[in-house]
């Protein structure tokens, strides 16, 4: 494992910790999209089915379990927690997730490397992860002033993707025969989706202003 991959994973881990801290410390999930969190849980569950039959390393196993449990935990907070659930604004978080999940499933059934249940679900999770942030970005755009921690969460999540791009470039240069086109193309699209957000995040940070996205 190279430094970019490790830094990417740590950034991903940190983003979730920031999100959980925000929810727990402020007892509020204002500005957090439940739809995106549910999509991520679906992504992790469909991708990490291999926990049941293949082992790569203790590191991988731990991280997979962490991602599944933490996104489940965020969803539990938003849906079930007595005070946090009252701060969830479902009227703003209206993205139709089936418009994302259905095309991803059709694509996974069409473009995959092996027509088996686990491989199609794995491919589905790669496609779905690429677009799962969209409900969150739409919600941020609707929120006039984005609170710092929510902004940081999305920034770290985008940062993790950017580091994975570097990881792939490193692997292409160092591992003969290494290729994974489905992952590369989806990952590049996923990172590109953050470009606009990055621009406004860095601008507000440089001007010392609160983040607000133009509508």
């Amino acid at each position: 494992m190279n430094i970019f991959r490790f830094a990417g994973d740590m950034t991903h881990l940190l983003s979730i910790i920031v999100l959980l801290l925000k929810i727990n410390a402020t007892k509020s999930c204002a500005g957090v999209s439940l739809k995106t969190q549910e999509l991520y849980l679906l992504v992790f569950v469909t991708r990490y089915l291999d926990l049941l039959y293949s082992y790569i390393s203790l590191y991988n196993t731990f991280m997979k379990l962490f991602f599944i449990c933490s996104s489940g935990c965020v969803i539990w907070y938003i849906r079930e927690h007595k005070t946090v659930s009252q701060t969830y604004d479902s009227a703003q978080d209206t993205f139709r997730v089936l418009f994302l999940a259905c095309p991803c499933m059709i694509l996974a059934l069409t473009v995959n490397h092996d027509f088996t249940v686990t491989e199609v679900l794995w491919t589905f999770s790669i496609y779905l992860e690429a677009v799962a942030i969209l409900p969150q970005l739409v919600l941020l755009q609707r929120t006039k002033n984005v609170d710092t921690l929510t902004g940081n969460y999305v920034f770290l999540l985008g940062g993790y993707r950017a580091l994975y791009l570097l990881n792939w470039i490193y692997r292409i240069l160092t591992e003969p025969g290494y290729r994974q086109w489905i992952v590369w193309i989806s990952g590049t699209i996923q990172t590109a989706i953050y470009c606009d957000f990055f621009y406004y995040y860095i601008k507000s940070w440089r001007n010392n202003e609160r983040l607000s996205l133009p509508s």
Binding site: D9, R47, I182
Partner: peptide, 10 residues
């Protein structure tokens, strides 16, 4: 199809 590597990333 050429074989892709094992799914060793997260």
């Amino acid at each position: 199809y050429r074989e892709e590597p094992a799914h060793d990333e997260l």
